[in-house]
């Protein structure tokens, strides 16, 4: 086994995390290689700084207190809460601005959709107010006919005929 391979396994070897088939060649290599043995000793020294600590006991009545609070709906002291009072003003202003922008965008969208569906022609044919137009055309025809009756030089085909005075010029 090469030194590089052994060095990557030394931590697992010390932590007893290797299978016997992995640990056996590491063990053999450590017996033969002074450099790798030194590395293992260094890591053993590092581990010796983690001494077992005394068991810790919860304060008296802790479990009953927690259980009572849990059933009372307590979510805990460390649960994040929204900033209140004067603190955190800037985020609240920003939040307000974002909300207002969203409302304005929604209103604009509703207006745009309303205009689209109420004012836009539904068919391919252009729809003007045809009854008024027809009435206007009939009025114009009537006025034209009356005007023609009043003009003596106009023939029946509606072509303009100059008067004698005008023709002699």
């Amino acid at each position: 086994m090469k030194c590089e391979a052994v060095r990557s396994l030394v931590a697992g070897y010390l932590d007893d995390e290797l299978s016997e088939s992995q640990a056996s060649p590491v063990r053999q290599h450590l017996l033969d290689c002074g450099e790798c043995r030194k590395l293992m000793q260094a890591q053993t020294a590092e581990k010796s700084w983690f001494v077992p600590t005394e068991p810790m006991t919860a304060p008296e009545g802790f479990a009953a207190r927690v259980s009572r609070r849990a059933f009372a709906g307590d979510k805990g002291l460390l649960t994040p809460v929204a900033p209140q009072g004067t603190g955190g003003g800037e985020p609240r202003i920003l939040q307000f601005a974002i909300q207002m922008t969203a409302v304005a965008a929604a209103v604009l969208l509703i207006l745009a959709l309303g205009m689209k569906f109420s004012a836009h022609p539904e068919g391919a044919e252009l729809r003007a107010d045809s009854s008024d137009l027809r009435e206007a055309l009939e009025t114009m025809d009537r006025l034209n006919r009356e005007e023609r009756l009043e003009l003596p030089g106009e023939n029946s085909a509606g072509e303009f005929q100059p008067t004698a005075t005008e023709a002699g010029k």
Partner: peptide, 11 residues
């Protein structure tokens, strides 16, 4: 420590 443990169980 106590606050964290208490919150742990409340969560």
């Amino acid at each position: 420590v106590e606050d964290i443990v208490q919150d742990t169980f409340l969560k």
